[in-house]
Design a protein around this nucleic acid. Structure first.
Lengths: 181, 181
DNA sequence: TAATCGTGGATATTAAATGTCTACGAAGGC
DNA sequence: GCCTTCGTAGACATTTAATATCCACGATTA
């Protein structure tokens, strides 16, 4: 059992957008560069978040992605459900009914105890993720990291192209110990 | 994210063994027929349970599998860990450190909040599974199903071969509404 | 000694995750 | 109106894991 990469990508991108000023749209390329992710594949993951109503996509110049609602109203579970789906990782195949001597459907009115236990565990997992919002996560971002991001967003507002700034000029400064999250 | 079939197989087989009398060993073929599972692949899953110290394998004629310890001392989590491993389904790739402006390792002394949230959820999931033992699950098996199994185990003790009994003779009776779990 | 078992490894098959590419439509600036 | 910057949608290719099968081998018992 393993969660796809899209979960980490989606959570980090959503968390980054949660720290963007008001309604600023962040282009996909900027997000991809920020975390060194394949832009084309990231597009797929972000589409899921848009379809789920977590992100809002803006077309055209100065376009990009922004949160569809306040960070305090988006839980980690919301992002998980959008990227991974809401299905229980345990899929009961009812092998009780398949054997040499199959259980009759009447005896299966109540789902088998095993499936019940697995479902309860899944609910506990979901409840834990539902208890945390993007706003709370944003509050835990270290101050220096947050300020670095603020500068990045400012750049974005001024020059619509090459959101990371001139690559050659900032290479030295970037390697000197800047931070993001 | 999805759990492998082996989880359901392992849980059902362990639950069945939990209902077997004292130290009776149940051959793999019997288990496979009981749930209509591919015997060769089931062997792989059972090996994991043996390696984890949950099952004990007995070689030779009258051999098979039995629980390595009392059902009350085997939790659902034990089986899950044996079959699926104990790894967190969320693997943090620390994409914070990979971007155009990487976060310095010093700023990552504390694991990123996102990973922390995911880990906590995983712990909640595990705690939920750890709270249930095979003995408790066995107690929830319907009475008629349990008695059917008792008869099956008795057959096993008497005739070492063809644990399911003569296939042709029991076909009609088997379809008439017998039960197992 | 022969028959019944489980073990371990090699191998094939299938499904899903991962990643890329291209044509297209939407929206703003000139 | 036209062009550029964007996201969208779908068709692919690639990689990895799950699923499954098979066989030679050792252990055990009648």
């Amino acid at each position: 059992m393993r969660l796809s990469q899209g979960v980490e990508w989606g959570l980090h991108c959503a968390l980054l957008l949660a720290q963007a000023p008001d309604g600023l749209a962040v282009p996909r390329r900027t997000l991809a560069e920020h975390y060194d992710l394949p832009e084309a594949y990231l597009a797929k993951q972000l589409q899921s978040l848009v379809a789920a109503g977590i992100l809002h996509a803006v077309s055209g110049p100065r376009g990009g992605y922004r949160l569809a609602r306040p960070p305090a109203e988006i839980t980690v579970l919301d992002v998980l459900d959008a990227v991974e789906g809401t299905a229980d990782p345990f899929v009961c195949q009812e092998i009780r009914q398949r054997g040499v001597i199959p259980v009759t459907p009447e005896q299966c009115r109540r789902p088998c105890a095993i499936a019940a236990v697995m479902t309860r565990a899944h609910q506990a997992w979901r409840a834990s993720l539902r208890a945390v919002t993007l706003a709370e996560l944003a509050g835990r971002v270290p101050r220096p990291v947050r300020e670095q991001q603020r500068a990045r967003f400012a750049q974005l507002r001024q020059s619509p192209r090459r959101a990371g700034g001139p690559r050659s000029g900032t290479a030295a400064a970037g390697a000197a110990g800047s931070a993001h999250d």
